[in-house]
């Protein structure tokens, strides 16, 4: 079977529709991961709760996100939209990664900074809000950015729980028209079209923040 350009052009709108869902899931899921990851990183330093949080997120981090998606999808009541499940699971899974990044950032803050806070007897909220976090976050912006791209590339998994993202569209087109080549190839190209430019931007950020 040969490449059919006319057919390929005719399916672009459908695939782009899927791409919009893909990007939507990535952006919302990433916000969840950023906020939850920070909470996890801080909770891990608390007595008693810390080790429990650590074990739970270690488990989440070392098991496949696809299995987690299928698991939650099978358990959730049918009234919950698959996209909501997908975004939540991706967000929690990536929170396990971002928590590690935040942790390394927090550990990178010089010991003298903590000692100074104690000497000034700053309340905990100001220690974290005004001293530790501003220094920690600056250093972790590039690695956090990398996870945005990773997450974007993990959104095709949502197709397994019937979210109409790009892979879902590509497969639907393939079954309907009995030709899958164009759809899958275009899906791959669309992925490149988003992830290569974003990788370039992240590398720029990396250089900028590394210089400081």
């Amino acid at each position: 079977m040969n490449w059919d350009t006319e057919f390929a052009i005719s399916i672009i709108p459908q695939l782009l529709q899927g791409l919009v869902v893909t990007i939507q899931a990535t952006v919302i899921g990433y916000v969840v991961a950023l906020i939850l990851g920070l909470a996890v990183a801080i909770l891990r330093r608390v007595d008693y709760i810390g080790p429990v949080v650590f074990v739970v997120f270690e488990f989440i981090r070392t098991t496949p996100v696809l299995v987690q998606l299928l698991f939650v999808f099978a358990l959730a009541p049918p009234t919950v939209a698959p996209l909501t499940i997908g975004i939540s699971v991706l967000g929690v899974h990536y929170a396990a990664y971002t928590a590690e990044v935040y942790r390394s950032g927090i550990e990178g803050v010089a010991k003298g900074q903590w000692e100074a806070c104690r000497a000034l007897s700053l309340p905990p909220l100001r220690v974290w809000g005004a001293v530790v976090m501003p220094q920690a976050i600056r250093k972790v912006i590039p690695p956090l950015g990398n996870y945005l791209i990773s997450m974007f590339k993990d959104t095709p998994y949502l197709f397994a729980i019937t979210v109409p993202e790009m892979m879902f569209m590509a497969k639907a087109i393939g079954t309907e028209a009995f030709r899958s080549m164009e759809a899958y190839t275009l899906a791959g190209l669309f992925f490149l079209a988003v992830s290569v430019p974003s990788a370039v931007i992240i590398r720029r950020l990396e250089r900028r923040y590394a210089a400081v």
Partner: peptide, 23 residues
């Protein structure tokens, strides 16, 4: 590196499994 890092593994898999046999 750019090409294979930029495409999701799942997309590659489906491409090999379903598109390659067609071409």
């Amino acid at each position: 590196t750019e090409a294979f890092r930029g495409v999701a593994a799942l997309v590659l898999l489906f491409w090999f499994a379903y598109a390659v046999p067609q071409i």
